[in-house]
């Protein structure tokens, strides 16, 4: 197996065994989605109207939960040095970690979303759009998040500062993702919004490994 695959597999295994990973993110996602009707009332029309936005915001926040440990664990126990000296370039290390994070949080969140959409009285077409937008958009959350995680990896309380750094940068993801659902609800096509979302995600996944690797290098210098 390649070095890349080896690292990816290890990170997935660690996520599965830490008990944090997917289960925690999914519970949080479902919990936020449950609290919203309790807050805004059970008017089914209103819930369908806000579903896209609420579920997108909830998905981003859930993905954030496990993000601060993306590099921090390996940094604290000394694995990161050993990984940095491996034949794998740090950019590819960052990409493997982004992929592992997406597979263990973004993808499960996406798969759960139709169920929550059902609770929000969302029709088939907007539900499908929500599903697609999460599928396309959550990799961008992991990618942009990886930059934040790498910048705060030496901080004891990085989990507090991380959301402040990356949430503003993720505004376009929420806008295009929830926007696509809103367009479909209004009987229009969400294709344009999904296209913009895909462009953002593509750019983020392509560029963020470089920023994350630069920041990991900086921290290894200490």
């Amino acid at each position: 197996m390649s070095s890349f695959g080896t690292l990816l597999l290890r990170d997935l295994r660690l996520a599965a065994r830490s008990g944090g990973g997917a289960a925690l993110a999914l519970s949080f996602f479902a919990l936020v989605a449950t609290l919203v009707p309790l807050g805004v009332g059970a008017d089914l029309k209103l819930l369908a109207r806000v579903a896209g936005g609420v579920l997108w915001v909830a998905a981003v926040l859930s993905a954030l939960l496990s993000l601060d440990r993306l590099f921090q664990g390996d940094f604290e126990d000394g694995s990161l040095e050993v990984i940095a000296l491996s034949p794998l370039a740090l950019e590819m290390v960052a990409l493997a970690k982004i992929l592992a994070h997406w597979l263990s949080t973004g993808l499960p969140l996406t798969l759960l979303s139709p169920l929550l959409a059902l609770l929000f009285n969302l029709d088939v077409a907007p539900t499908l759009t929500l599903f697609l937008s999460l599928l396309i958009g959550t990799p961008a959350v992991s990618a942009v998040g990886a930059i934040g995680a790498s910048l705060t990896l030496s901080l004891k309380r990085g989990g507090l500062i991380l959301p402040l750094i990356i949430l503003p940068l993720l505004a376009p993801v929420v806008i295009f993702g929830a926007g696509a659902v809103a367009l479909v609800l209004d009987g229009m096509s969400g294709g344009g919004a999904l296209g913009l979302l895909a462009a953002f995600a593509f750019g983020a996944v392509l560029l963020s490994p470089f920023a994350a690797a630069a920041s990991v290098r900086l921290n290894l210098g200490g």
Binding site: M1, S3, T6, L7, R10, R13, L14, R17, S18, G73, D74, E76, D77, G78, S79, L80, E81, V82, I83, S86, P87, L88
Partner: peptide, 24 residues
């Protein structure tokens, strides 16, 4: 280094195989 770079969740063999494969 100072730290051993080991994960509590992995077995000794898994840990060593990971490093071996990572280094090709």
């Amino acid at each position: 280094g100072h730290h051993d770079g080991l994960k509590p969740q992995l077995t000794v063999r898994e840990q060593l195989d990971f490093f071996a494969r990572l280094y090709g």
